[in-house]
Design a protein around this nucleic acid. Structure first.
Length: 897
RNA sequence: GGGCGUAUAGCUCAGCUGGUUAGAGCGCCUGCUUCACACGCAGGAGGUCAGCGGUUCGAGUCCGUUUACGCCCACCA
C-alpha cells in the first residue's frame, strides 16, 4: 500500500503531532498484553506528582524511557510502559489547604471527610494535567493501565505491606527523635531534610555549679532550647572537670537543678568541653538522655511556638490517664516565653540571660541548618510518637542484590551512591500528620488501649470489644511509591497474569537525585515482598540546567517550559536535543541553539523525504533492493548496514547519546550530502527505478532507526512513502545482514569521494565559482574505480569532461594529490605559480612529517613486536599510502618547475 | 570530615573496552538564487585534551598527585 502525497516545504510539527499521536492511540499499539510467544520488556514510569506540571526533568526522563520502549517494541518484545501518577501527600495537601485558605476555610472547619472530598476533587480536576502533557511529548505509555498511588490496587498493596511488616516486627511505633516541620505541621523523614548553610552564632552561657558555686561555660547555637535542658554533659576523661562528677548545675532563668553527667558525646577538644543536654529537641541529646535515663522536657509546640500552661496541662492529663506511651515527653510551661515563636523566644531569652549575667560571649558562626525539602522552614528536631520501619533487616538483601549484580546502575558510579545510602540509613519515619494519603491501618482501643493493625477495617476491639479509633496519620508518600513496580501489576495478588508476565521490570529510568528517596526503597521493598529485585537496570540521568548551568527553579524563574518548546520547535526537536550530546548521569544545559539544531535536523530529514517522493512521482517502488546495485548503492547500503549494527549495540548498552550522534551523521552526511547528490544524475536516466528503490530502502531504514528518538516526523514521513504495514512504530527493527556488507565498494567509493573533496577544496581556496566548469584529468592506478565516478565528478566537482589514465601532460594545470590519484585541472589563468609551488611544498612537508612519524614507529621493534598485528598492519598500509602520496607530490612539483 | 563528578575549539558538549592527523552543534571567515532543504550547499580558520609525575611500543582515554569549579552524604555543642 502506498499513500504518496505532497509534503510541505518545511516540516510543521504542529500540524502533525496530535494527529499522529491519536493515530497511534487508535491503533492500540501502546497497549501490551502478556504474550507467551514474546519476551516481555517492562518499564514503570516514575510517577509524576499530581500537583506537577511537566518540566524539563520530566521531559528528559520520559524521553529516555520512550526511546527505550519504542526500540524494544520494534525489536518484537511484548513492551509495557506503565504510566501513572503519585498522590504526593505533602505537596497536594498544601495546594488544597492553600485553595481553601482563599475561601476562608481551614482543615479543621471541614473535618477529615470534608477535606478529603475536596482533595479528591482537586485531584480529579488537576491531576490529569501532567498526563496530557506527557502525551504531548510522544510518550507511548499503555494508557489503559494508568495507575494512581491511591487507587484501590495500590492502596491494597500498601495495607498488605504495612500489616506484614508490623507482624514481622519491622514496623513499630514509638517516641523517637524526628524531623518536625512546623510549617507543614508534620514529621518528615531524614531523606526529606535538606541542609542549608546559614549564618548563626555560638552563644557562650554560664551555668552555676550548685555544689562548688563555680561557673561552667558552655556554648550553644540554639539558646531557646535551654528551657528544656535536663542535664549538662562532660567527658569522663576530662581533667578540667574531674572534680565535678556527680555535681549539679542550676539552670539559669528556670532555676531547675540539672545533673552533670559524663558522656562520650562531650568532646574535650571542642569548645569548653561542656555540652548542655536537651533530649527533647536535639538528636544527639536524645541519645545522651537515653543513656542516662534523663527526663525529656518538650518546650516547643508542634506549631513551632513555646509551650505554655495549656500544653502542659494536656500532657499532664495524658500522663495521669496512664495512656502515655514509653518515652512520652513532659511539657514545660515556658511562662513569660509561652506562645512566642522560637525566634522570638531566642531573642527574649538571650536578653534575659545577658541581664542575669549568664551570657559570657557571642561569637558569629556559619553552620548547616536542616530545612524542610518542601517549604524550607527550619526543621525542629522533636521527640514525637511516630511509626517507623526498621531498616537494618531490609537493607541487607538490598545491598546484596546490587553487589551480586542482580541490579546494575548505569553509569556504574551510582552504585556507590546507593550503597552509601543503604548502609548509612537509619529507621525510616513513615507517619505523617497529614490527611491526604494512605491512612495508617492501625486502630487503638478506647477501652483497653490495644493496638490493632489490620488489612480490613475492624469494627470493634478483638480483645475487649471496645470501640476503636484509627490512627489519624497517613503514610509517607514514598511508602506507596516504593511498591510501585509491583503494586501496579496486581500485587499482592501473586496469581495476577500481569505480575507473572511483566514483573520483575527491566529498566528503571530516573535522576540521580532520587536514588535515596525512591530507587533504594523500591529495591528493598521488591526484595522483601516479592522476593525479586524489581528491575535489572537503573538508568540514571542528570539534571537539565539552564543555559548558565544553574538549576532550573521556580524561585529563580529560570525554568523553561517544555510545552512551549514543543509548540515552537516540535516534540521531536525537544526529544532529540535531550538525547543528544549527553551521557548517562551527567547534567546538561538547556540551550535554544541545541533545540534549533535538532529542529533543523528534523527538517533536513523531511526534505530528503520530499526529494524522494518528488522522484517517485507515480511510479511503483518495490520495497526491496534492486538486483543490480551500483557502486554508490553498495556504498550507502553497506554503510547503513554497519549503522544498524552500531546503533542497536549502543541502544543495548544505554549509550543513547552515541547512537543518536551516529544517526545524525549518517543521515545528514552520508545520505543527504552524498548519496542523494550521487543519485541525482541517475534519477534523470533509465536507471532511475533502481535508484528510487535504494532511496526508499535506505530512507525507510533510517526512519526506523530514528523513530525512537523522533517518533512524529519519522512516522509522518513513513506514512507518505511506499510502505507495508500500518505504522512505522510497529515495524520490525532492522538487523545487520552479512549479505549487505560491501567493504571493497565502500573503499572504492571513498577514493572517489576523497578526490571530489580535494578538488572542491582546491577550487574553494582559489575562489573558483561552481559555475566555472573545468576539465579534470585523473592520473591513477585505480582506473576502473574512477571510471565509475565520472558523473560524480561532473556533478559534484564542477567537472566538464573527465579523463582517466596513467599520466597526462597538462602544462600549467593545477595539480591536486590524493593518496590514490593526481588530479590535474587546467585553470591556467587562475593559477598563481608561486602560490601553487608554496602550497605543494607545504603539503609535501606535511606528508613527510607524517611519514616520518609512522616510520619511526615501525622502526621501533618494541612496537612491531608488542602491538597487535592489525595495528601494525594499519601502520604499514599508512606508510605505503603516505609514501605514494609523497612521490606524487614530488612529481607535481617537478612538473611545475 | 568522608564520597563523587567535571575540567577537550570562542560557546555548549561527545569521545564506549588505550591504537592513523582528537570530533559535533552553534558562532566566525570565504564562496554559492546547484531543479529536497537558506531550518540550506561547498570550503576554511580555530585545540600543547587543566598542571605535574608515572605505567605502556603507544595515553584525551589507565594510575598517582596538584589546582579550579560543582554535587551528594555526615549528629558536630
Amino acid at each position: 500500500m502506498s499513500t504518496n502525497k505532497e509534503l510541505a516545504k518545511t516540516y510543521e510539527p504542529r500540524e502533525v503531532e496530535d494527529r499522529i499521536y491519536q493515530f497511534w492511540v487508535d491503533g492500540g499499539w501502546f497497549h501490551a498484553e502478556p504474550d507467551p510467544d514474546k519476551t516481555p520488556y517492562t518499564i514503570v514510569i516514575p510517577p509524576p506528582n499530581i500537583t506537577g506540571q511537566l518540566h524539563m526533568g520530566h521531559a528528559l526522563d520520559n524521553t529516555l524511557q520512550d526511546i527505550l520502549i519504542r526500540f524494544k517494541r520494534m525489536q518484537g518484545y511484548a513492551t509495557l510502559w506503565l504510566p501513572g501518577t503519585d498522590h504526593a501527600s505533602i505537596a497536594t495537601e498544601a495546594k488544597v489547604v492553600e485553595a481553601m485558605r482563599k475561601e476562608g476555610l481551614t482543615k479543621d472547619m471541614l473535618g477529615r471527610d470534608g477535606f478529603l472530598e475536596r482533595a479528591w476533587a482537586w485531584k480529579n480536576q488537576y491531576g490529569n494535567r501532567i498526563v496530557s502533557q506527557l502525551k504531548k511529548l510522544g510518550s507511548s505509555c499503555d494508557w489503559e493501565r494508568e495507575r494512581f498511588t491511591m487507587d484501590e490496587g495500590c492502596s491494597a498493596a500498601v495495607r498488605e505491606v504495612f500489616v506484614r511488616l508490623y507482624d514481622e516486627g519491622l514496623i513499630y511505633r514509638g517516641n523517637r527523635m524526628v524531623n518536625w516541620c512546623p510549617h507543614c505541621h508534620t514529621s518528615i523523614s531524614d531523606a526529606e531534610v535538606e541542609y542549608e548553610e546559614r549564618d548563626g552564632h555560638f552563644w557562650h552561657l554560664l551555668y552555676t555549679v550548685k555544689e562548688t558555686g563555680e561557673q561552667l561555660e558552655l556554648a550553644t547555637t540554639r539558646p531557646e532550647t535551654m528551657l528544656g535542658d535536663t542535664a549538662v554533659a562532660i567527658n569522663a576523661e576530662d581533667p578540667r572537670y574531674a572534680h565535678l562528677h556527680g555535681c549539679h548545675v542550676i539552670l539559669p532563668l528556670v532555676g531547675r537543678e540539672l545533673p552533670i553527667v559524663c558522656d562520650e558525646h562531650a568532646d574535650m577538644t571542642k569548645g569548653t568541653g561542656v555540652v548542655k543536654i536537651t533530649p527533647a529537641h536535639d538528636p544527639n541529646d536524645f541519645e545522651v538522655g537515653r543513656r542516662h535515663d534523663l527526663p525529656i522536657i518538650r518546650v516547643f509546640t508542634y506549631d513551632g511556638l513555646m509551650t505554655g500552661a495549656a500544653d502542659k496541662a494536656a500532657a499532664d492529663e495524658l500522663r495521669a490517664s496512664g495512656k502515655a506511651a514509653a518515652g512520652e515527653p513532659e511539657v514545660l510551661d515556658c511562662g513569660k516565653y509561652a506562645g512566642m515563636t522560637t525566634a522570638e523566644a531566642r531573642r527574649a531569652i538571650l536578653e534575659d540571660l545577658e541581664a542575669g549575667g549568664y551570657l559570657k560571649e557571642t561569637e558569629p558562626h556559619r553552620h548547616d541548618v536542616g530545612t524542610c525539602y518542601r517549604c524550607h522552614s527550619t526543621i525542629e528536631p522533636m521527640v514525637s510518637k511516630q511509626w517507623f520501619v526498621k531498616m537494618e533487616p531490609l537493607a541487607g538483601p538490598a545491598i546484596e542484590a546490587v553487589e551480586k549484580g542482580e541490579i546494575r546502575f548505569v553509569p556504574e558510579r551510582f552504585t556507590k551512591n546507593y550503597m552509601n545510602w543503604m548502609r548509612g540509613t537509619r529507621d525510616w519515619c513513615i507517619s505523617r500528620q497529614l490527611w491526604w494519603g494512605h491512612q495508617i491501618p492501625a486502630w487503638y482501643c478506647d477501652k483497653c488501649g490495644a493496638t490493632v493493625v489490620s488489612k480490613e477495617d475492624p469494627t470493634v476491639c478483638p480483645h475487649c470489644g471496645g470501640t476503636l479509633q484509627q490512627d489519624p496519620d497517613t503514610l509517607d508518600t514514598w511508602f506507596s511509591s516504593a511498591l510501585w513496580p509491583f503494586s501496579t501489576l496486581g500485587w499482592p495478588n501473586t496469581e495476577s497474569e500481569d505480575l507473572k508476565y511483566f514483573y520483575p521490570t527491566n529498566t528503571l529510568v530516573t535522576g540521580y537525585d532520587i536514588i535515596g528517596f525512591w530507587v533504594s526503597r523500591m529495591i528493598f521493598s521488591g526484595l522483601a515482598y516479592t522476593g525479586k529485585a524489581p528491575f535489572q537496570t537503573v538508568l540514571i540521568h542528570g539534571l537539565v540546567r539552564d543555559s548558565q548551568g544553574r538549576k532550573m527553579s521556580k524561585s529563580l524563574g529560570n525554568g523553561i517550559d517544555p510545552l512551549e518548546i514543543i509548540d515552537q520547535y516540535g516534540a521531536d526537536a525537544l526529544r532529540f536535543m535531550l538525547a543528544t550530546g549527553n551521557s548517562p548521569g551527567n547534567d546538561m544545559r538547556f540551550m535554544n541553539d541545541k533545540v534549533e539544531a535538532s529542529r533543523n535536523f528534523a527538517n533536513k530529514l523531511w526534505n530528503a523525504a520530499r526529494f524522494i517522493l518528488m522522484n517517485i512521482g507515480d511510479n511503483d517502488v518495490p520495497l526491496t533492493l534492486p538486483t543490480e546495485l551500483t557502486l554508490e548503492d553498495k556504498w550507502i547500503v553497506s554503510r547503513f548496514n554497519t549503522l544498524v549494527q552500531a546503533v542497536t549495540e549502543n541502544l543495548d548498552k544505554f549509550e543513547l547519546g552515541i547512537a543518536v550522534q551516529k544517526l545524525y551523521d549518517f543521515i545528514w552526511d552520508n545520505f543527504c550530502d552524498w548519496y542523494i547528490e550521487l543519485c541525482k544524475s541517475r534519477l534523470q536516466g533509465e536507471n532511475a527505478g533502481a535508484a528510487r528503490q535504494v532511496l526508499v530502502y535506505v530512507m525507510t531504514g533510517m526512519l526506523q532507526l530514528l523513530h525512537p528518538f523522533m517518533p512524529y516526523v519519522t512516522e509522518e514521513i513513513w506514512q507518505s512513502l511506499p510502505h507495508e504495514g500500518d505504522a512505522l512504530m510497529v515495524t520490525k527493527w532492522p538487523t545487520y545482514d552479512a549479505a549487505l556488507a560491501f567493504p571493497e565498494e565502500e573503499k572504492e567509493m571513498e577514493r572517489i569521494m576523497e578526490a571530489i573533496g580535494a578538488i572542491r577544496n582546491r577550487r574553494g581556496e582559489m575562489n573558483v565559482p561552481p559555475s566555472r566548469k573545468a576539465q579534470v584529468y585523473i592520473e591513477t592506478s585505480f582506473v576502473d574505480t574512477f571510471e565509475k565516478g565520472v558523473p560524480f565528478f561532473q556533478r559534484l566537482a564542477s567537472a566538464s569532461e573527465v579523463q582517466i589514465g596513467a599520466a597526462f601532460d597538462i602544462p600549467g594545470a593545477v595539480s591536486i594529490v590524493t593518496a590514490d590519484a593526481t588530479i590535474k585541472i587546467p585553470l591556467d589563468d587562475l593559477v598563481d605559480k608561486a602560490a601553487e609551488l608554496a602550497r605543494l611544498n607545504k603539503e609535501k612537508d606535511n606528508v613527510q612529517k607524517q611519514l616520518d612519524g609512522v616510520n619511526a614507529r615501525l622502526a621501533n621493534p618494541a612496537f612491531t613486536d608488542k602491538a597487535p598485528a592489525n595495528v601494525v598492519q594499519t601502520a604499514r598500509d599508512q606508510a605505503a599510502r603516505l609514501q605514494e602520496k609523497l612521490a606524487l607530490l614530488e612529481q607535481s612539483l617537478a612538473a611545475l618547475q
